[in-house]
Amino acid sequence: MASTVSQTEVEIKNANGMHMRPAMQFVDTASRFASAVKVSNGKIEVDGKSIMHMAMLAAAAGTKLTIKAEGSDCQQAIDALKDLVEVKLFGEPAWLPKEKAAE
């Protein structure tokens, strides 16, 4: 049996942050797996399968989150979520840190 706990750190890289639609995608992805998914921003830890919780994280671009999965398919879950957040960028334009710095 594979390890039952897996964890990773991700950074929100899409320009508009984790607003409603990305939160929905995150929850949908997390819900495909049997593992329990917890997400923390360092202050609070929430249920990664609850859109209410995820939306309340209000993770703007640049925010770092810790994703923790616990269960038989924990590694697959972590991989899929990291891919969604950092590679697919929720299908949204990327955030350019320079823009923000210039403001």
Binding site: M20, R21, M24, V27, D28, S50, I51, M52
Partner: peptide, 19 residues
């Protein structure tokens, strides 16, 4: 459609209903 999809997730969210 996205907006409705989000609303639907909220309405189906067990955490929200439990609260």
């Amino acid at each position: 459609k996205d907006i409705f999809a989000v609303h639907l997730r909220f309405l189906k969210d067990k955490n929200l209903r439990a609260k």
